[in-house]
Design a protein around this nucleic acid. Structure first.
Lengths: 338, 338
DNA sequence: CTGAAAGCGCTAACAA
DNA sequence: TTGTTAGCGCTTTCAG
């Protein structure tokens, strides 16, 4: 398992192939001008001595790392995972590798992470959300590389933006429920300051209810993010105990919405006959559960894909100035609300 | 957003602080011997000119990257995400950063990925599963760094192992069902060659049924991995159509098991009264769903945590020779099977 | 505790 | 198409 002797370098390959190190270097690039015969000899020689290209040296000399740094709140979340897939898929086509870190929904942790990531000299950085510590903002601004904020529409963007308004998305759901004649609507989640997107969604709920002239005070805290199915169930229990006349509940995510649904099932409360439930995110479970869950699809995969495409344009110099790409979340009315 | 002038280097910091670059270098290490006063001056100077430590140069000169490469089949899977969390948490304590890649459950893609990752000169590599292409095996063997295979107990390990036998875990479930008096037991999933763990689980099912003298032919294909809830539901539909007298079904994962459960709910087939359902993985949904799902907990988080601990021992030279750490999956009997 | 010299392995820049 | 020279920004090594 361990190779005792030193790893071979390009110089070793060059010697064996009877060429200069520079030619070996060229042979390992895609588009370089090396004769097919020479390239083959070189690659065979490299294979023979078990040469592995050393990116650390290449990075330093060329001042290019082919890294794109990415911070997401959690790896264990299908929405962010989808964004990451869309992003890394799009970047892979250009030989760019995502350098991932997760913040645990904590902007202090995000600050530490950004500092660590920037040391690796990424060629761009993609962060989730539009709220950061002052020092994190400063580091991003001074990094000298493209910055993209996602999953939000910040008022004062640092650079590029690919996202949507969490508040407005929830307003769409409230307005739909009100149009259906409901008035006693509750919201589960988004109580913790840490949960920036969750808080935005709750604020959006409150603003929308106020705009409709309705009571926005049916708010159930569900703890710090990530809010689990279990916490959704517990929150639903509290809602049913304290405000039993509630007609509909909007949950901060599909996971908590599903938990809420199961709590109703355990208590024998029919959904949607007695109460409507809505989630957020269009996770797979929202489509599969019985009943299926009304939700909002923020197109996580597209956020990633469009971010990748934007970055490629920026790196090609085809993008003048900072771009803000607005994603339009889609309301999906399903079995849990009709 | 873009810094036009070149990024400052240690030399710039040194000049401003009135010391040599070497002293700046020492000031940026934790344990280095620099007087507190000097260190403070240096860090202030660095902050002033917006200096960011350049890991690419450090990596090359010191021949250390503080990277640990990790391959997982998919980021969008709670089990692997948990392993990754346990792993990266454990490594972070020592300043090691995980360099992540995902294989899409494809060992060809894994081969490409391993090659890319090794170019970054990680100090160890952790792969999921024990089946690899011959070239991937060779690259891992010759990499000269610790290698850990996880989520499996390979017959011929490359280096270290932290995992369990997928086949034996499923056998435990089969034996439990048989002990409860069931004989007509089916298996959903694991048909595609690509799905190494899924195939192992199916083979384990077949072997266990044979050992019990029972018919192991109730096998429902569910497509290539990852097998979704939707595919689990479709497979359950086929099972109910073709083998309606089946008494219990073991699914390759909790996600497909939940899909199967919903299909029963849509058809009005009571679970567990008419048919038992079991999954694999102890995902959150298995505990929350109604009824809750009988499953097997393979302790994904522990796999990651123990892998991290093992790697730290190896790097400290406290581990002689390759280790195999066996994880013992736990049978969880829940509402879907009683 | 601090500094000077050298070089990690590759590639930009220039030359042939 | 191929080669030569120099140097990316840090840290090892050795010296004080």
């Amino acid at each position: 398992m361990n190779t005792p002797r030193k790893a071979p370098t390009m110089a070793d390959v060059a010697r064996l192939a009877g060429v200069s190190p520079m030619t070996v270097s060229r042979a390992f690039k895609r588009d370089s001008s090396v004769s097919e015969a020479t390239r083959e000899t070189i690659l065979k020689a490299a294979d023979e001595i078990g040469y592995v290209f050393d990116a650390t040296a290449s990075n330093l000399r060329s001042q290019k790392t082919d890294f794109v740094a990415v911070t997401i709140p959690s790896i264990n979340n299908a929405n962010f995972a989808d964004t990451l897939r869309g992003l890394s898929e799009g970047l892979k086509a250009r030989g760019l590798q995502t350098l991932l870190g997760y913040t645990d929904y904590d902007i202090q942790e995000e600050e530490r992470l950004i500092e660590q990531l920037l040391r690796r000299r990424p060629e761009a950085i993609v962060v989730t959300g539009g709220r950061h510590t002052p020092r994190a903002r400063r580091m991003l601004q001074n990094a000298g590389i493209p910055v993209v904020e996602t999953w939000d529409l910040p008022e004062a963007p640092i650079g590029h933006v690919v996202g949507f308004s969490n508040a407005l998305a929830v307003r769409g759901m409230v307005d739909h429920f009100v149009a259906q004649g409901l008035t006693r609507i509750a919201f589960i989640g988004g109580d913790a300051d840490r949960d920036t997107r969750g808080s935005d969604r709750r604020e959006g709920f409150i603003a929308a209810m106020r705009a409709q002239g309705l009571d926005p005070s049916r708010l159930i805290a569900a703890g710090a993010p990530p809010i689990s199915m279990r916490e959704g169930a517990a929150a639903m229990g509290r809602l049913l105990d304290t405000l039993p006349d509630t007609q509909a509940v909007i949950c901060v995510s599909d996971l908590s919405a599903f938990g809420a649904l199961t709590e109703c099932q355990r208590r024998g409360i029919p959904v949607p006959d007695r109460i409507w439930i809505a989630g957020f995110g269009d996770y797979e479970i929202a489509e599969v559960s019985v009943p299926s869950l009304t939700t909002i699809n923020p197109f996580p995969r597209e956020i990633g894909a469009r971010t990748a495409a934007l970055l490629l344009r920026v790196m090609d110099g085809q993008q003048e100035g900072p771009a803000t790409l607005a994603i339009h979340p889609q309301l999906l009315i399903r079995g849990s609300s009709r």
